[in-house]
Design a protein around this nucleic acid. Structure first.
Length: 279
DNA sequence: ATTGAGACCTGTCGGC
DNA sequence: TGCCGACAGGTCTCAA
């Protein structure tokens, strides 16, 4: 479930349980997800206190009293659940019936809360990084601006797209351009901005990299789409709230457009768009 | 420098 | 009911 809005919702769910929490025990039920867990994963976490739980793009970052940072990524199918004292008994029941084989990491907190990471597809990731490793990280250090921050605006977006001949939608999926956008919200934002997913990314900027009017529209659309998705997500409401994603053949939701949503593959991913109003 | 394809892994859904 | 292929919200790597 993981694009920026979903990860942010997870962060908000976990924060009250994790922040200032002392980790008393960690259960690791397999050696790897997308990548191996770092050596000494459990022992390096045990006895540490979580200082803060932050989100960067689609990553969750738990800063620890030990000085290390626990980096977590949900991949395609990762999720967390929290159980209190009552839930621990439920966990015990499940144990008898056979535990969920996709529960890979269990954090036991001093409060009695138990936080479990579940990931059927195992595209998720957990790592422990020092301050230095964090700032030099090949992926994390190159992430683009947070789309919901003040530093992300038409100027920044245009500069990031300057000279790029790749399709605009493919550019939006590049985490160096706008960190945290995924396939769904790339489609959604482009529809809100009335921009074709197929036009070259550079067309929203002047050759010098200044924002055109289209860049302003797109930057605004990205913020709007993500903000609303976070609200819907934290308010629990699940999908079917998309304008174009997974709506092939349905009428374009834009008032008076009359177009029909179509689907095409770009860079191996499904793109949903209205050929009538997105130019 | 880009970009497309394939790989990673499991679950689900539609068609036969 | 059961099997099979296609597909899924994310990266990463390798070849062209």
């Amino acid at each position: 479930m993981p694009e920026l809005p979903e990860v942010e919702a997870v962060r908000r769910l976990l924060e009250p349980h994790f922040s200032n929490a002392l980790i008393t025990r960690v259960e690791l039920r397999r050696a790897d997800l997308r990548a191996p867990f770092p050596t000494g994963f459990e022992s390096r976490l045990t006895g540490a206190t979580v200082v803060s739980l932050l989100r960067r793009a689609k990553y969750l970052l738990a800063t620890l009293s030990s000085g290390e940072t626990l980096v977590m990524h949900l991949g395609m199918s990762g999720s967390f659940r929290v159980e209190g004292a009552a839930g621990v008994r439920a966990e015990g029941d499940r144990e008898v019936l056979g535990a969920d084989p996709h529960d890979h990491v269990v954090f036991h907190l001093h409060s009695g809360d138990v936080v479990t990471f579940n990931d059927p597809r195992r595209f998720g990731l957990m790592d422990l990084l020092s301050e230095a490793e964090l700032t030099a990280h090949p992926v994390l250090s190159k992430l683009g601006r947070e789309p919901l921050s003040n530093e992300f605006d038409a100027v920044a977006l245009a500069r990031a797209c300057q000279g790029k001949k790749i399709p605009l939608k493919v550019a939006l999926l590049d985490q160096r351009v706008a960190a945290g956008i995924g396939n769904i919200y790339a489609c959604e934002a482009l529809h809100v901005a009335r921009l074709s997913p197929f036009r070259q990314a550079r067309t929203i900027a002047t050759p010098a990299g200044a924002p055109r009017e289209t860049a302003h529209r797109l930057a605004r659309a990205i913020k709007q789409v993500l903000t609303r998705a976070i609200e819907a997500e934290t308010r629990n409401a699940r999908s079917s709230r998309f304008r174009v994603y997974d709506r092939t053949g349905q009428p374009c939701p834009r008032r008076g457009c009359g177009g029909t949503i179509r689907q095409r593959i770009q860079a191996g991913r499904s793109t949903f768009y209205c050929p009538r109003c997105q130019r």
